[in-house]
Amino acid sequence: MEDLIRYVQDTLIEKKELPDFSAGDTITVYYQIREGQKVRTQFFKGVVLQRRGSGATETFTIRKMSGSVGVERIFPLNAPAIEKIEMNREGRVRRARIFYQRELTGKAARIKEKRRG
């Protein structure tokens, strides 16, 4: 039964080639928006708060500060509107969901960069 659900997801939802990002990373999402007949590309740059769900219906939440107001957006990972995702910064965080970021501003909201090598 679960197999049939998975089969439907696999056949009907096109999987995309996206970078492997996780909570704490800063990414830029380029996505299309439709205004009447015109299709335009917009981007949203922010910190990934969480990845949620599994398989073809997975979503992710990203947050940015717009002036002094926090803005969050949830995207389905395989949404057709997403053109590409750019990795800007890999952050080192200790948990998979970093909702504590919402309470932090300024210096306290900084996230350490992941050390490589």
Partner: peptide
């Protein structure tokens, strides 16, 4: 069988 979500022709979930 169960529920899931797919993207329609207009790109909506």
């Amino acid at each position: 069988i169960g529920m899931t979500s797919i993207f329609g022709p207009d790109g909506k979930n």
